[in-house]
């Protein structure tokens, strides 16, 4: 059943657009071009961050950090292997993508850790970046409770990602 969601969505979007006399193929083309521009921006980050994370992994630092952090993370039920992802996710979206991809490669994309990383990536946003864009654009200095509330939402996301993955996939 879920197999049909994506092809059906693709067809539906094209059909509705065509029904509204939109030039759907040209719009798809120009959107795909935008995607290519996104990839041009994203690729250098992926290269740099995967270099750093692969180095971190090869040096043994990741295991050290995971051992060190595991009491805290285990207390919250979050796999300690995802520590770097949790730390980098609110700061940079493309860096988080690189770190998450490395976790999925390393532990397997359908493993508990791989899935938890995927759910974390899919259900949280780049908090610090977003906050700085909005307040920067408006020139606001007194941000009041925005950051604490946003970080609380992120923390909930990380906890729930670990919990839902455990409940739904094991």
């Amino acid at each position: 059943m879920t197999d049909y969601i994506v092809p059906l969505l693709l067809f539906l979007v094209c059909a509705v657009a065509l029904g509204k006399r939109e030039n759907s193929y040209d719009i798809l083309l120009s959107g795909a071009g935008d995607g290519l521009k996104l990839m041009v921006k994203l690729t250098p980050t992926l290269i740099l961050l995967l270099t750093a994370v692969t180095m971190l992994r090869a040096s043994g630092a990741v295991e050290l950090a995971a051992d060190f952090l595991s009491p805290v993370f285990s207390f919250f039920g979050i796999p300690p292997e995802t520590a770097l992802l949790v730390l980098i996710r609110p700061i940079s979206g493309s860096a988080a993508l690189a770190v998450g991809a490395e976790l999925m490669t390393r532990y397997g994309v359908d493993s508990q850790i791989g899935r938890t990383a995927a759910v974390m990536l899919g259900s949280t946003e780049t908090t610090f970046y977003t906050v700085s864009i909005y307040f920067g654009a408006l020139g606001i200095r007194r941000t009041r409770y925005t950051l604490p509330a946003a970080l609380l939402a992120d923390l909930t996301g990380f906890l729930m990602a670990a919990l839902t993955t455990r409940l739904l996939f094991s």
Binding site: L9, L10, V13, C14, V16, A17, K20, E22, S24, I27, L28, L29, S30, G31, A32, G33, D34, G35, L36, L38, M39, L42, T43, L46, I47, L48, L49, L50, T51, A52, V53, T54, M55, A58, A98, A101, E102, T105
Partner: peptide
């Protein structure tokens, strides 16, 4: 190894990213 993995990842997701970017634009127009 890490640098090469970055390029591999970028290349292997580029197709989907571009396609969905197109679908997203179409969803807006439709």
């Amino acid at each position: 190894e890490g640098a090469a993995a970055g390029v591999t990842l970028a290349l292997s997701i580029a197709g989907s990213v571009c396609l969905w970017s197109g679908v997203g634009k179409l969803m807006e127009k439709a």
